[in-house]
Simulated scan of single mutants.
Amino acid sequence: MLQRVLCGYTTAISKFKSNPSAALAEANGQAIAVSSNNQIQFYAVPTALFEKMAELCETAQRNEAPGKATPNNL
């Protein structure tokens, strides 16, 4: 089975569990795909990156919310 990896770094769950902070530091602020049995189980995302992602989601919701009142559809 093929699996798409959505980031540039991967690590085994056993290595990640032994020292998650070191794994995140090694990735230099980028997300890490954590795998078990050659399957991605989850992505570990540093705080700064997560906050940027949350901000982008909030901005997208404000600008593209269905039924949002805009000057064109009032």
Rank of each mutant, 00 (worst) to 15 (best):
Met1Arg: 12
Leu2Asn: 14
Arg4Met: 15
Val5Pro: 06
Val5Ser: 05
Leu6Gln: 11
Cys7Asp: 02
Gly8Pro: 09
Gly8Asp: 15
Tyr9Asp: 04
Thr11Lys: 01
Thr11His: 00
Thr11Val: 04
Ala12Ser: 14
Ala12Trp: 09
Ile13Pro: 05
Ile13Cys: 07
Ser14Lys: 11
Ser14Gly: 09
Lys15Val: 15
Lys15Trp: 09
Phe16Val: 00
Phe16Leu: 01
Lys17Met: 12
Lys17Arg: 14
Lys17Pro: 08
Ser18His: 09
Ser18Arg: 10
Asn19Asp: 11
Asn19Leu: 04
Pro20Asp: 01
Pro20His: 02
Pro20Thr: 02
Pro20Gly: 03
Ser21Arg: 07
Ala22Cys: 10
Ala22Phe: 07
Ala23Glu: 03
Ala23Ile: 04
Leu24Gly: 00
Leu24Tyr: 00
Leu24Cys: 02
Ala25Gln: 14
Ala25Met: 12
Ala25Ser: 15
Glu26Trp: 07
Glu26Lys: 08
Ala27Trp: 00
Gly29Tyr: 00
Ala31Val: 02
Ile32Met: 01
Ile32Cys: 01
Ala33Thr: 02
Ala33Pro: 02
Ser35Thr: 15
Ser35Asn: 12
Asn37Lys: 14
Gln39Leu: 11
Gln39Met: 14
Ile40Leu: 08
Gln41Cys: 11
Gln41Met: 06
Gln41Arg: 08
Phe42Asn: 02
Phe42Leu: 04
Tyr43Leu: 05
Tyr43Cys: 03
Tyr43Arg: 03
Ala44Val: 00
Ala44Asn: 01
Ala44Gly: 03
Val45Asp: 01
Val45Ile: 10
Pro46Trp: 00
Thr47Tyr: 09
Ala48Ile: 10
Ala48Gly: 07
Ala48Arg: 08
Ala48Lys: 07
Leu49Val: 02
Leu49Thr: 02
Leu49Ile: 03
Leu49Gln: 02
Phe50Ala: 09
Phe50Val: 05
Glu51Gln: 13
Lys52Gln: 14
Lys52Ile: 09
Lys52Tyr: 11
Met53Lys: 05
Met53Gln: 11
Met53Val: 08
Ala54Gly: 08
Glu55His: 12
Leu56Gln: 13
Cys57Leu: 13
Cys57Gln: 12
Glu58Ala: 12
Glu58Asn: 12
Thr59Gly: 05
Thr59Leu: 06
Ala60Pro: 04
Arg62Gly: 10
Glu64Gln: 13
Ala65Asp: 06
Ala65Ile: 05
Ala65Val: 05
Ala65Glu: 08
Ala65Tyr: 06
Pro66Ser: 04
Gly67Asn: 03
Lys68Phe: 08
Lys68Cys: 10
Lys68Ser: 14
Ala69Cys: 11
Ala69Ser: 13
Ala69Asp: 13
Ala69Thr: 14
Thr70Leu: 09
Thr70Glu: 07
Pro71Thr: 09
Asn72Glu: 15
Asn72Pro: 10
Asn72Tyr: 14
Asn72Cys: 15
Asn72Gln: 12
Asn73Gln: 05
Asn73Leu: 06
Asn73Lys: 05
Leu74Phe: 13
Leu74Gly: 14
